[in-house]
Simulated scan of single mutants.
Amino acid sequence: MEAYRPSAGGGTELGDIAGRDDILHLVGTFYSRAFADELIGPIFTDVVHMDLVRHMPIMADFWQTVLFKAGLYSRNALAIHFDVHAKAPLGLDHFNRWLQLWTNTVDELFSGGKAEMAKVQAHLIAGSLHRRVTGRPASQYSTIPVRPAGGDGAGGGQSAGG
């Protein structure tokens, strides 16, 4: 399965992500969709039993830190995903679906520089988390993300990352 790539745009009539209220709207909308999703919903509801009311301010802190360098998030996201992966292995399909839902939600709600940054950063973060929980280095540049079927990875070292 090839890695999901975010789309390039959203509607021009939408406003950009401007602060915490917008982030709360974005993550609230996203998680309502993620919880209902056939593939990743059970991870949130049945595996980690996520308390969405308690989790929303944490995710708002995370995205406010990512988008506005607010310095509000101090948890270890990697350790949390390692714990989830130990309970229910997280495959590329899970990360791709998360990215697809995130990107679609951003595109439906916002347009502008911060909205684009939210999609790009989500892609980079998801890729890094996926590589780390599957035992590979975090950097997309230290591995070959896509290898030919049956290939040994030798010959050219062409990266499909971006």
Rank of each mutant, 00 (worst) to 15 (best):
S7I: 01
A8W: 05
G11V: 04
G11R: 12
G15F: 00
D21Y: 01
D21M: 04
D22C: 06
I23Q: 04
H25P: 00
T29N: 05
S32L: 12
F35I: 11
G41S: 05
P42F: 11
I43F: 03
I43T: 15
D46C: 09
V47Q: 03
H49L: 11
D51P: 02
L52E: 15
L52H: 09
H55L: 02
P57L: 08
M59C: 06
T65M: 06
V66K: 02
K69V: 10
K69Y: 12
L72Q: 11
S74Q: 13
R75L: 11
N76T: 08
A77C: 07
I80V: 15
V84H: 13
N96F: 04
Q100W: 05
L101R: 01
T103Y: 05
N104H: 14
D107F: 05
E108C: 08
S111G: 13
G112D: 08
G113L: 08
G113T: 10
K114F: 04
E116V: 04
E116L: 09
Q121D: 09
Q121W: 06
H123A: 14
I125Q: 01
V133Q: 07
R136S: 11
R136A: 15
P137I: 06
Q140D: 14
Y141N: 11
V146G: 03
V146K: 14
A149R: 14
A149C: 00
A154C: 10
G157N: 07
G162Y: 13
